[in-house]
Design a protein around this nucleic acid. Structure first.
Lengths: 131, 131
DNA sequence: CTGCATCCTAAACGATACTG
DNA sequence: CAGTATCGTTTAGGATGCAG
């Protein structure tokens, strides 16, 4: 046995759809933001925290996270409406993972950027081994 | 200060492109497979381990991982050609994260699947609060 | 065996306009 | 404020065929 349970699954295995929840840029950012902010955040507050996200993507991301039970949506029937989002305990566990991922990224930006440059340089100079 | 460095970056910040490396389904699977197999794997061996992946996606994924310095590609000039892929130390660090993600997914499949069903049920029954 | 190149479809995404 | 709806474009991805 050289594979863990989550690598075995066939394409139809539900655990894959679950793992793939986190294989998403905005999901990582949203979870990370909520995780680090510590308390519930409002829709536009979240939007302002995430440069580059569109309203559409924010809505969509929050919906799927809510659907999967990672985020709780709380609506205050005031006017104008006030909607807050916060991590559930399940979302909190995922949030901790996204923070780890963020830390890994931050710790190795330089190394990876260097690797990319080197690779691209090689690709640009080696393509013709003999002519 | 309520945001960690990796949440602040503007759209052009390089650390984002790095974080987004892991925001990819096949990257997670490939890193996970290599991480757990422990030793170098050949192209088709990797392919067989990952049900549903196409040759194109496997190649593409391995290339970007190689470019980013997470995976090392070793070619044995035999015939037929033998190509092995293994995690670099940087890739190993990422690999450990992907294993954590896989474990998180596996541990909460049921909970998430249940949440989805409940949400969809609510969505199917509540849409008309008043008519 | 390990790939690259091509075509083509499906899905993701951005922009914009509109609503309670 | 917090969305929904639609449209048009971009991108990802699958299938196939060919090559070292």
């Amino acid at each position: 046995m050289d594979t863990a349970p989550w690598t075995v699954p066939s394409v139809e295995c539900p655990s894959r759809t679950v793992l793939e929840v986190l294989a998403n840029k905005w999901v990582l950012y949203v979870l990370g933001a909520l995780q680090q902010h510590g308390e519930p955040m409002r829709f536009n507050q979240l939007g302002r925290t995430l440069p580059g996200i569109t309203q559409k993507m924010l809505t969509q991301t929050l919906r799927t996270l809510e659907r999967d039970g990672l985020v709780a949506r709380r609506v205050y029937p005031t006017v104008p409406p006030r909607v807050e989002y916060e991590l559930t305990s399940l979302g909190h566990k995922a949030g901790r993972l996204t923070v780890l991922i963020g830390e890994w990224a931050l710790a190795h930006v330089d190394q990876i950027l260097t690797a990319r440059t080197a690779f691209d340089h090689r690709a640009a100079t080696t393509p013709a081994p003999l002519s």
